[in-house]
Nucleic acid binder design. Structure first.
Lengths: 209, 209
DNA sequence: CCATTATCATAGCGATCACTATGAAACGTG
DNA sequence: CACGTTTCATAGTGATCGCTATGATAATGG
């Protein structure tokens, strides 16, 4: 038996920068300029580190981008899963999803729009893997939305024949369009109005007939 | 008086390539890969010309991209203005706009989605002028849609208080979202279903009350 | 103290970026 | 034919791309 003794400090020279803080800087830059529009030189400048530190900590530009995407999902993008999980009905969940998207997408303390909804929609062939990773996150978001709507249908909140996946694609499209317009400079009220109009397309509840 | 005589042929050596055809090849490549994702080397390869010919005919990569955007507007993107101009009512115009967008965005003979709706949403700072040019085309499209809806309101097709610009932004967002999903591989039926759902949000006509 | 380990800064790798200088080739004109 | 004009192909410009080799520096373990 040996004492595994997690030493209080690691062995060699300790890191000279805050990894989490550096990743947040990278997230902001990627969010603003996109994957292809952000260079490693700009990243290291914004993160306050040197290239060897970046590659030591994140492996590659692509690895850093993927970690930034994950951090987005746990931070600014968290409102989505929360809305789907915490509201009592599918309609309330979608209403909150749209309402909060209008807020997050126009938060002045951050880049405009959504980092996932409208990222890497076209790119050089050598970046296809990155594009597919982001597209996969969009698909996962639509799946989660369809699942929530499906539960609403099962609960009798919506007409029986309602197509959960189709409705999820519609509201996904609205959110993606809101992200486009936020990137084009639309303000909160413009996006909130889009959200309200989209809700008018919500299927009528089954009549008591 | 001198004969201005437009000579049948230009003076020097005649061009060895079809400018219009080369531009179409460039359009397809830009559409598929985006502005930053397309290199001049790939462009000259696809266009079947050499770099000096490209720069002689189009000035720069940016100039070529701007001409490609214009060609898109006169070709695949022509369905938008046509729908707004040719339909008798605002609702019919929007319905056709959405229906044809679903077709064009999933035309298998072309890249997916819209070249304007979802292009250059983020980029390096040195390409800001290009991004603004595309954003300007999105704004112009929304303006045209708002104008058509406004005429519908004036014609009594919609409730008096209807906000034409807000409604235009909503349907613009739907089209942008359809473009995102087309780029992600959505098929025609999926987009057509989004279009149909969006039409359900069309304001009810003013009752005779 | 020395040895080990890990991170740091400097400098620069080959490849590609958008773009162009140079001169030969292909046309109308004299 | 030679001339002026324009386009062509070759080759390469400096700059930047993502990434890394090298060696100094700073910590722990003995």
């Amino acid at each position: 038996m040996e004492k595994t003794g997690h030493s209080r400090r690691a062995r060699g020279r300790p890191p000279g920068f805050d990894r989490a803080a550096a990743l947040e800087r990278a997230l902001a830059l990627f969010w603003e300029r996109g994957y292809e529009g952000t260079s490693v030189a700009e990243l290291v400048e914004a993160m306050g580190i040197t290239p060897p530190s970046l590659y030591g900590a994140f492996g590659s530009k692509e690895g850093l981008y993927r970690e930034a995407l994950a951090l987005y999902g746990e931070g600014p993008g968290r409102f989505g899963p929360r809305a789907l999980a915490e509201e009592p009905t599918a309609r309330a969940a979608v209403a909150r999803l749209l309402r909060e998207a209008a807020e997050v997408f126009t938060d002045r303390s951050r880049p405009g729009g959504c980092m996932i909804s409208t990222a890497v929609l076209s790119c050089a062939p050598e970046h296809r893997a990155v594009a597919e990773a982001v597209a996969g996150m969009r698909a996962a978001a639509t799946d989660a939305l369809a699942e929530r709507i499906g539960r609403g249908i099962a609960a009798g909140e919506l007409p029986e024949g309602t197509d959960a996946r189709a409705l999820a694609r519609f509201y996904g499209a609205v959110i993606q369009g809101m992200s486009v317009q936020a990137r084009d400079g639309a303000d909160h009220d413009a996006l909130a109005a889009i959200a309200r109009t989209a809700l008018a397309a919500w299927p009528s509840p089954p009549g008591p007939e």
